[in-house]
Design a protein around this nucleic acid. Sequence first.
DNA 1: TTTAGTACTTGACAATGCAAGATAGCTGGT
DNA 2: ACCAGCTATCTTGCATTGTCAAGTACTAAA
Lengths: 107, 107
Amino acid sequence: MNTQFKKGVLELIVLLAVRKKNMYGYELTLLVSKVVDVNDGTIYPLLKRLTNERYFETYFVESTEGPSRKYYKMTDLGKKRVVLLKKSWLSFSNSVNKFIKESEGNE
Amino acid sequence: MNTQFKKGVLELIVLLAVRKKNMYGYELTLLVSKVVDVNDGTIYPLLKRLTNERYFETYFVESTEGPSRKYYKMTDLGKKRVVLLKKSWLSFSNSVNKFIKESEGNE
DNA sequence: TTTAGTACTTGACAATGCAAGATAGCTGGT
DNA sequence: ACCAGCTATCTTGCATTGTCAAGTACTAAA
C-alpha cells in the first residue's frame, strides 16, 4: 500500500469513525486497519493532535481485559471539521479520477 | 485545498500526463494546475526525482518563446510504474469512498 | 533597455506516516 | 509464583513529499 496516499485521509477516516460512535485508540486502530493499512504508532499521535485541536474530548473507562481505555468523543467543532474535510476529499478524488479517465487509451 | 491529499497523487498525475505525450516542465505545470492546485516549485523537483528513478528520459528542444525546453519522455520502466500506481490509487480511493458511504446517516 | 513571459534550480521548512520499542494491566496454563 | 500472550497507550527518530521564496537566465516585444 502506498504510504503517501494516506496523508491527510487518515484524519478523515478517524473523524468519520468517532462521529458515528465514541471509540478508544486500540479499537480505532483495528477498525481503520480494515479500510487502509495502518499502524497504531500512527493513530495515537493523530488522536492527540485532533484532541489538541478540540475536535475530540476524552474520558477513561475501566476494562476487564487490560488497562483503562481512553475514549474519544466528537465535539461540535469536530462535526464541522468532518463535513468540510469530507467535502474536500470528495472533490479532490473526483478531480483525480476524472483526469485518470481522460488519460486512458494507451495503457 | 488540502496539501496532504496531494502526496503521491501528483506523481501519478504527472506520470499519466507524460505517458500520453512528451511534455516540458512549464507545460506540465499548467496542465496539472487544472486538475489540482499546484505550484511550479513543486513540479520541477518531482520531474527531477522521476528522471533519477528512470521513469523519464529527457531531451532539449529550442523555443522561440524563451529558453530551450527540457522535454520528458516516459521509459518502459515508467510505463510499468504508472500502471501499478494507478491501480494502487483506484483501490485506495475506492476503499475510502466506501467507508465514507458507510459512515453516513448522521451528518 | 525595460518589461513580460518562459524555463528551471536551490534550500529551508512543514506535515504526516512508519518502525521499533517502552510501559503496563489482565488472564490462563504450568 | 512465573510466564506467555493479548490488550492498551504512548514516545522517539526517521523518511518522504509538497510548499514557498528566492534567484538565474533566456527571448521577444514595447
